[in-house]
Design a protein around this nucleic acid. Sequence first.
DNA 1: TTCCTTGCAAATCGTTTGCATAATG
DNA 2: CATTATGCAAACGATTTGCAAGGAA
Lengths: 132, 132
Amino acid sequence: MATLKYSRQRETIKNFLMTRKDHPTADVVYMNVRQDNPNISLGTVYRNLTLLADIGEIQRLRVGDGVDHFDADTSPHYHFVCTECGSVVDLEMDSIENITEIAGANFDGHITGHVTYFYGTCKHCTQKQKLS
Amino acid sequence: MATLKYSRQRETIKNFLMTRKDHPTADVVYMNVRQDNPNISLGTVYRNLTLLADIGEIQRLRVGDGVDHFDADTSPHYHFVCTECGSVVDLEMDSIENITEIAGANFDGHITGHVTYFYGTCKHCTQKQKLS
DNA sequence: TTCCTTGCAAATCGTTTGCATAATG
DNA sequence: CATTATGCAAACGATTTGCAAGGAA
């Protein structure tokens, strides 16, 4: 496997992602990282996000809106996606890891994990709906 | 809202999808439907799959491989995705619908549902791995 | 010097859309 | 006749990639 070399761009991207808990898209990362690094290219942002996700330093979230989101928090946790405003937030909830076993009970192959996203309206959008 | 008019193409697409339990992609639908309907266009296939999904006659599956899959079975059930061969199959498993309540317990907004996909290796790919 | 990384632009890929024509109700 | 659906091709948007030049070890 190729050896990893240091790159200022990669460090900037990782650092930026760690300051955010709203799971930005590649484009949002690009916009923000450009402030410190005006010459960085979108391709480099994509390359590094993919690389960081591959080596497990960040997480790629496919929430179903057609755009990938990224999360510097790689600890196991679940996400909520607001169907009104599209926001993606962490959920504080009891473990549901047992669903993998439930799913594997009658299954011939080998289940190693699962991906779950919860949908609905966030606090803000729920309140807005009540007013109308 | 616009009234739905009959179309032979739409019926063919729906019928084809009902014969399959492997959750084909739009492209696979296109290939197959062309046998009965050589002049059908990819655009028409996409338009009808989207329409059928919108009116709830079929289900769109975003399994995370970058391509949408479609399922004529709209009853609530879960799917397994093989990370080796990419196959998508139905899972026969006990209900885990309660995870929506678990997720909502400490949440400020309103959770209406969830999407879950299970990953691992299917029967066939698991056996292949054991041999190597 | 080796080879990983970048910036840039072009390419890819799944999907959507505009438009003139065909089909349905 | 009014309106929806089609085929075709062009457009789209997110992401990837080829390449020559730059930077790290």
